[in-house]
Simulated assay, not measured.
Amino acid sequence: MRDDRERLRDMLEAIAKIEKYTRRGREVCQEDELIQTWILYHLQIIGEASAAMSEATRARHPELLWQDMSDFRNVLVHEYFRIDVDIIWAIVQGELPTLKNQIETILLDNPRKLL
């Protein structure tokens, strides 16, 4: 069973994989269906990891929008017809860098102890 630390690392890995292709710019991402699918898949991983996080970790780190990430994953999976590429791009550019920094801080501040 994966622990919270592993789930946070999963989230960081998903962010890194999203960054790999979004560095090419918005136009490239909007024109390439495979890149869009890649981004959506890794956003789902972030949401799934968030949903699986323990209540203790969620309580200790309320600065992360755990429920929002989980809810967004549900939209991506179950309400895919509502996906708006402009909203996805805004999340990737505006929210993922902050999330990345928050997760890195949590992992650095808690190198060995439980989160």
Rank of each mutant, 00 (worst) to 15 (best):
I103S: 13
E13G: 15
R7Y: 14
T37H: 12
L115R: 11
C29I: 06
L34V: 11
K113Y: 06
I39K: 01
I87C: 03
D86W: 01
R7E: 01
K20P: 02
E104V: 03
L43S: 12
T22F: 04
R58Q: 14
I91G: 04
V28N: 03
E33C: 09
L12E: 11
E19Q: 10
R7W: 08
L34M: 14
C29V: 13
R9G: 06
L43G: 05
H78Y: 08
D3M: 13
R24F: 10
I35Y: 03
A16F: 09
S54D: 10
I39R: 04
A59G: 14
K17E: 13
D3G: 14
A52E: 12
D10I: 04
D32G: 00
G47T: 11
Q102F: 12
I83F: 04
A14V: 01
Y80P: 08
P111H: 10
I88L: 01
Q30D: 07
Y41L: 09
A59L: 02
D4K: 11
A56K: 12
D68S: 13
Y80G: 05
Q67Y: 12
I91W: 03
F72Q: 12
K20W: 05
V92G: 02
A16N: 14
D109N: 15
R24G: 00
R23H: 10
M69K: 11
I103Q: 14
G47D: 14
H42C: 03
M69V: 13
P62M: 12
R58V: 06
D3A: 06
R5W: 00
A90T: 09
Y80T: 05
A16D: 14
E31I: 01
A52Y: 06
F72G: 10
E48F: 02
R26K: 14
M53S: 10
S50A: 15
D84L: 07
A52P: 05
E19Y: 13
G47E: 11
R73Q: 13
E33L: 10
M69W: 13
F72H: 05
I45M: 03
T22N: 01
T98Q: 10
L34H: 08
K113T: 15
T98K: 12
Q67A: 13
D68K: 13
Q36I: 07
